[in-house]
Design a protein around this nucleic acid. Structure first.
Lengths: 147, 147
DNA sequence: CCTTGAGTTGAAGTGAACTTTAAGTAGCAG
DNA sequence: CTGCTACTTAAAGTTCACTTCAACTCAAGG
C-alpha cells in the first residue's frame, strides 16, 4: 500500500475526512487523484496533518500553519530537520502563552484573597499588557485592537 | 451620579456597548430602564462585567460564566467573599490549562530534537490524554468528543 | 425649540474551523 | 454483474462571541 485513501488518512491521523478535504481546499495538504477522481495521499502527508494538529494545540491559526507549511521545500520530501525547524518556530509562541496564563493565575490568586475584581484597582480586568488568553478565539478577545 | 449609562459602563469597563447589550440578552448582566427606555446600570454591574472579562481570559465560555453568575445571591449586592468564591472556582481550570500547555511545550522540545512528528511515535500528535489547547476556540478542537 | 450625540430595536453579518446534506460515482468482494 | 461501502462535489449549516446596520427615539445644552 503505497498511498492512503482519505478514509485511511483520517483513521491514522484522527482527523475527519471532511476536515482533510477542507485542509486541501485551504492549501494545507495535497493529494493526487485516481483515474476515478478519488484522493490518494502520499505517506508524507501524514506528517503534514500531524504538524497541523500539533500547531493547533500550540494555538496557531490555520492561516499561519499554511504559511509555515509553505516554507517547506517543494522539490523533495521534507526531512526531519525541516520539521524540526517548523516545530522550533512555535516554541516561542507556546512559551509566551504559558507566561500569560501564569501571570493571570498569580494575579487571580491575589484577587481571590482580596475579592476585589475592581476595574479600577485590579490588574486582571485591565489587560493593558496583552493578557491574551490564547487559542483561536473569536475576533478581538485575543487581539483587542479596538482599545 | 448613582447609575451608569451604557456608554459610561462601556468606557469604564472597556467592553463595547454592543457587547453589553449582548450580555444582557444572554442574561449575564442586568439594567434598569429610564422612563424613555434607556438602560441605567447599578455600579455593582461593573464588577459583574469585570468578572466576565477575567473569566474569558481564563478560557471560560459565556455559558459557564452565566452559570457562575447565577450562583450569586439575588437579594443583595454580592460581597467580596462572593466574588472570591467565584474567582477561586476558576483557579483549577486555569492551572489545568497551564499544565496542558507546559506538557505540550516539553514534548515539543523533545520533538524539535528528533524532528519526528510521527503520529505513530510522537505523543504530541496523539492527544489521548486531553491535550486541550484552551481558549474559546471553535467547536471540538478543544473538546474532541468526536473521537 | 432645535440640534446633536447617545441610546433603542430586531435582524443580519462576521470569522474561524469545520460539519452536514444531497445527489451522485468509484472500487472491490463475491 | 451485483451490491455495498467509500468516495466525490458544491452549497449550506453550525458554534461562539460579538458587531454592524437601518431606522428610529431620548436627553441635554444653547
Amino acid at each position: 500500500m503505497e498511498t492512503l485513501t482519505i478514509g485511511e488518512l483520517s483513521a491514522r491521523s484522527g482527523v475527519a475526512p471532511s476536515a482533510l478535504r477542507f485542509y486541501e481546499r485551504e492549501g494545507l495538504i495535497h493529494a493526487s487523484r485516481t483515474s476515478g477522481n478519488q484522493r490518494r495521499y502520499d505517506r508524507a502527508e501524514l506528517r503534514r496533518v500531524s504538524f497541523i494538529k500539533i500547531s493547533q494545540q500550540v494555538g496557531v491559526s490555520l492561516d499561519e500553519i499554511r504559511e509555515a507549511l509553505a516554507s517547506l521545500p517543494e522539490n523533495r520530501t521534507p526531512t526531519k530537520a525541516d520539521w524540526s525547524r517548523l516545530s522550533a518556530s512555535w516554541r516561542y509562541r507556546l512559551q509566551e502563552r504559558i507566561a500569560v496564563l501564569e501571570r493571570l493565575r498569580d494575579e487571580l490568586s491575589g484577587c481571590i484573597g482580596c475579592g476585589c475584581l475592581s476595574l479600577q484597582r485590579c490588574k486582571l480586568a485591565n489587560p493593558g499588557d496583552r493578557l491574551a488568553a490564547g487559542g483561536t478565539g473569536p475576533q478581538r478577545i485575543l487581539n483587542p485592537a479596538a482599545d
